[in-house]
Design a binder for these strands. Structure first.
Length: 507
RNA sequence: GGCGCUAUCGUCUAGGGGUUAGGACGUGAGAUUCUCAAUCUUAAAACCCGGGUUCGAUUCCCGGUAGCGCUACCA
């Protein structure tokens, strides 16, 4: 009852067939959370048994994505380096009579599902029941074959397991097809080894289970698309003489159309680099992904990693697929964007400054860190993505304001279509005089500008707008006094002078 | 086709035999303000359908429907 169980060994096993997918990222995050919540060991394993589709570039981009997330792991393996282990395991399973050679030529997938039109294929009797002698003879003759698991049939055997998310699951073994363990090795002449009886490449099922057993993985947390594959895996663990690990399946991430997220169908929104490049903070991205299919059950949405780790349990995982709500115009889920804005606001100024620096640099701005730090408090509540900082703050960094519509210098009363240009001109001239003579601190500017407005018989609004547009080049900008301060007197006077010229030319 | 999983506001979700079905994002309205943003208040918005069990079902059971997954050498 009180026995202390060993710390869990958990793995994340992506296959490097492209960039890091948001779905994979979420699986990684959930595995990490489970591991760290339970003080276990996190194993990262590259499942690269599909030589046709795996690329080095993909391996790089997956690591890049994982590193960006900021979650760590303790051990690292590459499945392709463990090939011998897989083949030896296959041979052992064959030796125990639990698998057989299938000499059926590997069939190319034609698009027509004709073969499975009526009921599921289970096995090929001619192959399953072939005598060992004949099988050996044909293999020795160099005839290519796949190795198939001999699923127990006619014994009324029921396979079952308790899923950490979906609960008790069971299925008669008779319904499980004789799945492949080793792919056929192709034509004999392609093989370099003299004998070459077991040089087929392992399938995912075999390699994955052999490695999970060898690495003593205790908990397999993966996408729900593997739920029904689990029966095969149970059989493999059994054949290996290894205890079956615990399984937990995660609901899938789907697009608004309900389909599983795919690059071909949904474009770059399925790649975590898209989020990174747009200026998501990794902690916000993780926060968002966690909320897709998991709930802390405390009515809170904004969570930091430490809280999530403490609150995370498999019981909190929802069983239905979760929609990532994006559209073509709006590639990011609104909640992800909101969470990002929240995390941006929660960041200390110096940290946010650091995060912003590369985005500014990309736009050609390389201001001093102190300058960025001065600007950050003015824009942090006005940006949702880091990249928004560029359009929000460019006027702080450009030597010369981009051309703007001079009409914006002229305030409009509600309902009006043309404002009082002469008045705007007077405002700017007054402002220039005032700013030339006022200390550039908040209170002084506040007092001086409001007094100037009063002297012109104006309220603050119509007084501030011309000044704001003159120094920022636009109507919507951060609060005026702070903006003037960061810009400095010299720049402000210069820009107001230019605005005056602009306004005069308009008349 | 077979087998499996799932079904609460537009989206993410909480809840659970008797509730005004809760929260969040988004949306509408208002407040505040030097603009924008932020903030605050507020509104609209959901239990897939049909049976059964029950005094009572959105909740439990069955069926249907729909979506998704797996289904002869992808992972």
């Amino acid at each position: 009852m009180t026995s202390v169980s060993a710390p869990p060994r958990v793995r994340f096993a992506p296959s490097p067939t492209g960039f890091l997918h948001v779905g994979s990222a979420r699986t990684f995050i959930f595995n990490w959370l489970y591991t760290r919540h339970n003080h276990g060991v996190m194993v990262l394993r590259l499942d690269d048994t599909d030589v046709e589709r795996n690329t080095d570039a993909s391996v790089q981009s997956i690591f890049e994505g994982l590193r960006w997330l900021g979650l760590d792991w303790d051990e690292e393996y590459k499945q392709s380096e463990r090939l011998d282990l897989h083949r030896k395991a296959a041979e052992a399973i064959f030796a125990r009579g639990l698998a057989y050679r299938d000499f059926t030529p590997a069939h190319v997938d034609d698009d027509s599902p004709s073969a499975s039109a009526h009921g599921a294929w289970l096995f090929n009797p001619g192959m399953r029941e072939m005598s060992r002698e004949e099988s050996d003879r044909r293999a020795a003759a160099g005839e290519p074959f796949a190795l198939r698991y001999r699923v127990p049939r006619g014994e009324g055997r029921i396979l079952h397991f308790v899923d950490g998310v979906y609960g008790a699951q069971s299925r008669p073994a008779d319904e499980v097809e004789d799945f492949a363990l080793l792919r056929s090795a192709g034509a004999p002449k392609d093989r370099s080894s003299s004998l070459g009886l077991w040089d087929g490449m392992p399938t995912y099922h075999l390699a994955s289970c052999v490695d999970d057993a060898d690495l003593a993985i205790s908990h397999i947390i993966r996408g729900q698309d593997h739920l029904t594959n689990t029966y095969k895996h149970l059989l493999i663990f059994e054949a290996l003489g290894a205890p079956a690990p615990h399984f937990a399946h995660l609901p899938l991430l789907v697009a608004p159309d309900g389909a599983k997220l795919s690059k071909r169908k949904h474009g770059p929104v399925v790649s975590v680099t898209t989020y990174r490049d747009a200026g998501f903070l990794p902690q916000a991205f993780v926060n968002f992904l966690c909320l897709l299919g998991w709930s802390p059950k405390n009515d809170r949405d904004f969570l930091v990693l430490d809280e999530i780790r403490e609150l995370f349990t498999l019981e909190g995982i929802h069983r239905a697929n979760a929609v990532v709500n994006f559209t073509e115009e709006d590639p990011f889920d609104a909640k992800a964007v909101w969470l990002n804005a929240e995390h941006i606001r929660a960041l200390p100024v110096d940290e946010l400054s650091r995060c912003l620096t590369p985005f500014l640099a990309q736009a050609g701005f390389n201001p001093k860190p102190e300058k960025i730090a001065a600007v950050v408090p003015l824009i942090r509540e006005r940006i949702k993505l880091l990249r928004d900082a560029v359009p929000a703050a460019d006027f702080f960094f450009v030597p010369e304001l981009a051309p703007y519509d001079p009409a914006e210098l002229i305030p409009l009363k509600k309902g009006e279509t043309t404002g009082d240009a002469a008045l705007a001109l007077r405002v700017l001239k007054t402002a220039r005089e005032v700013l030339a003579a006022t200390p550039f601190d908040h209170d002084s500017l506040d007092r001086a500008l409001r007094e100037a407005a009063a002297s012109l018989g104006l309220k603050a609004g119509p007084m501030f707008q011309p000044v704001r547009v003159a120094v920022c080049g636009r109507k919507n900008a951060p609060p005026l006094f702070e903006t003037l301060m960061v810009l400095g007197r010299e720049v402000c006077l210069e820009r107001i002078a230019q605005a005056i010229v602009l306004l005069q030319s308009l008349a």
